[in-house]
Amino acid sequence: MLRYTVRMSRLKGKDMNRKKGRLLAIPYIIWIAGFTIIPLIFILVKAVTDVNGSLTSANLFAIFDPLHRKALLMSLSVAFFSTLICILIAYPASIILRTSRITNKSIILFILILPMWMNFVLRIFAVQLLISNNGVLNYILTAVNLPPLKIINTPWAILLGMVYDYLPYMMLPVLNSVLSIPEDVIEAAQDLGSNRFRVLTHIIFPLSLGGIGSGIIMVFVPSMTEFVIANILGGGKIQLLGNIIEQEFTVTMDWNLGSGLSVSLMAFVLITSMIFGRNNEDTAAGISL
């Protein structure tokens, strides 16, 4: 009898907790519904309908129009190369930081994060100032009798801007994963006969793949959908898919086409994330750093 009452009251307690938990979740549910789910449904509906509201697949397949295909290709290549360059900078830097005798690695991390505290549009204007035809870079070049560089308003300028903007997002997860490899694991590999190169290829590299995966997602995804950098550093001459979508929404006012292109782009992004985010437990760790 006694046992029965105890069990009952415990059950009641559990129920109460659950109720309270549900209550606390409501603000988040409203947030997610209002700012993620509902807009997404709205976009999806627009994407599969035309101006009159009748069903069509034209907007979804509009990405294969020559104009859009060209923009997609440009977006893909800019995103691909900016991600690649970020890896090529971040990975060796992380290895060097790990092996260096700098004991206070958090200072380095702080310096890396510092630019992220500034608005990214402002940072891009700073880059524009540096590389424009009459900018600081060319001023220095002509001062030392070298020919000026004409990179503003070219894909190269966009690439530079993206690398500059997104490098910390690659650096953080990669550095985190490289630094978190225990020293004794590396010593064990040496103990078993590995030289430095083999330690790098067989231990450090595979153990930091998770961080690289996170970095790829965090750089590739935003640079795929980027349009502000292209507007400022491309001078409106370089069309990324992001620019075209932006124009459909703000200039042409064809929301159906804009939505269709957005959904196609989203599919690309999802596929990439799935490829690089697979069995990647480090993602969260990489971001939380």
């Binding site: 004794d184 694991v185 010593e187 064990a188 040496q190 103990d191 078993l192 006969g193 590995s194 030289n195």
Partner: peptide
């Protein structure tokens, strides 16, 4: 270490 004819069992195992 990689040239020495001895092997170590580490305190924290250090498995890969």
């Amino acid at each position: 270490p990689n040239k020495r004819q001895l092997n170590t069992v580490f305190q924290k195992y250090a498995l890969f």
